[in-house]
């Protein structure tokens, strides 16, 4: 498999996926009862003003026509105006997306590191106390929703034992010029290292709250696929040739065992972008997820379509990245086809 054509093919494919997704969400947003124009202007606005806004939103036209107008505009980078913020949706996304991406980035690092570490430990000490403790925490971690954890974290680290900041992205004593929208990066660019550290401490709790469920789920997947591979003949053979135990664990066992973990992890990380809503609400995190939910509640048609499109795009890109990692781990995928048997 050549990487270039592979990525190109996947990108082309994801364009179709995105078009399909946008059609579905476009129709869904419009068939839900409630008049967006009326909602935006309030119950006391005169009827002719509301009618005027409906026209501006092209709501007097048929659905296919509306979609066509939206699509041609979107291709030019114009996602329309938000009814709530009264700004172009693309500007809103530019403002809110980096905050969520920053959060998801650290969530992902936490997930990857701890899922693999805990999974490996649990497999190495299968049926011993280490495995048991990790198993109990897994059940707890998987069954507690992220927003409950978020509330717990605020109670514990915000009030009972205030060692970490629990609200917003940066302490109010700092002002950092916005360049990329990524707070830590912007602070570093400004050379303000204390602000960067402060921004990082703001990230810790929401990131952990978001990551914990997925981390434990993937630790379980890693464990079971490692345990599965441990009973394979190739591990017995490698042991039999006197290859040291540590090398077998971290080379010959880890690589084939990571394939299922990576597939699930990629999807989990991408899903975090949409699922971050409650955590963003609780930690007062100005992210895209919170923005998207507000858009839904106010039937802010353009904002809904814009957010869904962006999240869909990130999903598609994550998928491609996951496929590349899997291809890197598994030569059978990379080189294609299975000869012989």
């Amino acid at each position: 498999m050549k990487l270039g054509p592979f990525i190109l093919r996947r990108l082309l494919l994801s364009i179709f996926v995105l078009i399909g997704l946008s059609i579905v969400i476009f129709i869904l947003a419009r068939v839900v009862p409630g008049d967006p124009a009326r909602l935006a202007l309030g119950p006391r606005a005169p009827e002719d003003v509301v009618e005027q806004l409906r026209k501006e939103l092209h709501m007097d036209k048929s659905l296919p026509e509306q979609y066509w107008i939206w699509l041609t505009n979107a291709l030019r980078g114009d996602l329309g105006k938000s009814l709530v913020t009264k700004r172009p949706v693309i500007e809103d996304i530019k403002e809110y997306l980096p905050a969520t991406l920053e959060l998801v980035f650290f969530t992902a690092i936490f997930m990857v590191f701890f899922a693999i570490l805990l999974g490996t430990l649990a497999a190495r000490y299968k049926d011993r106390w280490v495995d048991g403790v990790i198993r109990i925490f897994s059940y707890i971690g998987v069954s507690i929703p992220a927003f409950v954890l978020a509330v717990f974290f605020i109670l514990i680290f915000g009030y009972a034992w205030p060692i970490l900041p629990v609200l917003g992205r940066l302490g109010s004593q700092f002002t950092v010029a916005r360049v990329t929208g990524f707070m830590i990066l912007d602070s570093m660019l400004a050379g303000n290292w204390t602000a960067a550290w402060n921004a990082f401490t703001h990230l810790i709790l929401p990131a952990i709250a978001l990551a914990l469920g997925g981390t434990f789920q993937e630790a379980r997947i890693t464990r079971s696929s490692m345990v599965d591979n441990l009973s394979k003949d190739f591990i017995a053979a490698e042991r039999g040739y006197g290859i040291p135990e540590r090398r077998i664990m971290f080379k010959y066992l880890l690589k084939p065992s990571l394939i299922p973990t990576v597939s699930v992890m990629g999807m989990d990380i991408a899903a975090t972008i949409g699922n971050a809503f409650l955590v963003e609400m609780i930690f007062n995190w100005p992210g895209i997820s919170r923005y998207g939910i507000n858009a839904m509640l106010f039937k802010d048609l353009n904002a809904i379509s814009g957010v869904v499109l962006i999240i869909g795009l990130i999903f598609a890109l994550t998928n491609i990245v996951v496929d590349i990692i899997v291809a890197f781990l598994d030569p059978r995928v990379r080189l294609g086809g299975i000869r012989g048997q």
């Binding site: 394979k232 003949d233 190739f234 017995a236 053979a237 490698e238 039999g240 040739y241 080379k251 010959y252 690589k255 084939p256 781990l329 598994d330 030569p331 059978r332 012989g340 048997q341």
Partner: peptide, 15 residues
Amino acid sequence: AMIFQDPTAALNPVF
């Protein structure tokens, strides 16, 4: 040294 019954199972598929 031991030679296994099924060479497909005895070789690590990803190395």
